[in-house]
């Protein structure tokens, strides 16, 4: 059977969440297994949120932040980027492939990029297979 990964996409409400809305409104369709979690700023996202997502059974976690220099809160996106880097290293040591955590810069207008990224991202998580957390009992 074809494997459908569970993916959480943390989206900054100022950029990627709007891009996702536009992508929705254009009715182009993107994988329905991607659950969008709205954040006030990517700088709010904590390591524990990402770990919890994996614990709850996510096969992949995507984090979308505003482009550098366009964070409405100045450096929230840069902060998120550093935190993701740190978390990816942690995941690898825990035994979860770091490729399951992906970080993207996106602006509110780049809804086509949003579609490309989630479609490609979905494929790459698919090719990784189910999360090791879920496979073993």
């Amino acid at each position: 059977m074809d494997f459908t990964p569970a993916i959480v996409a943390f989206c900054c409400e100022n950029s990627a969440y709007r891009a996702a809305d536009t992508a929705g409104a254009r009715q182009e369709g993107y994988p329905s297994n991607i659950s969008i979690c709205r954040l006030p700023c990517s700088g709010k996202l904590e390591v524990i949120h990402i770990l919890k997502a994996f614990e709850e059974g996510a096969d992949g976690v995507f984090v979308f932040a505003c482009h550098p220099d366009s964070c409405r809160f100045l450096l929230g996106n840069v902060r998120a980027g550093k935190r993701i880097e740190h978390t990816a290293a942690l995941l690898e040591k825990i035994g979860i492939e770091k490729e399951r955590l992906r970080f993207f810069y996106l602006s509110e207008l780049e809804w086509t990029q949003f579609l490309d990224l989630v479609r490609q991202g979905n494929e790459s998580i698919k090719s990784l297979g189910p999360s090791p957390i879920k496979v073993k009992p």
């Binding site: 954040l39 006030p40 700023c41 700088g43 709010k44 996202l45 904590e46 409405r72 929230g76 902060r79």
Partner: peptide, 19 residues
Amino acid sequence: GCGICAGECPAKAIEMVQY
């Protein structure tokens, strides 16, 4: 209302009311 403080607080003392 960016929540960066809540994200950084090591004692979990800061909470964003809606997040």
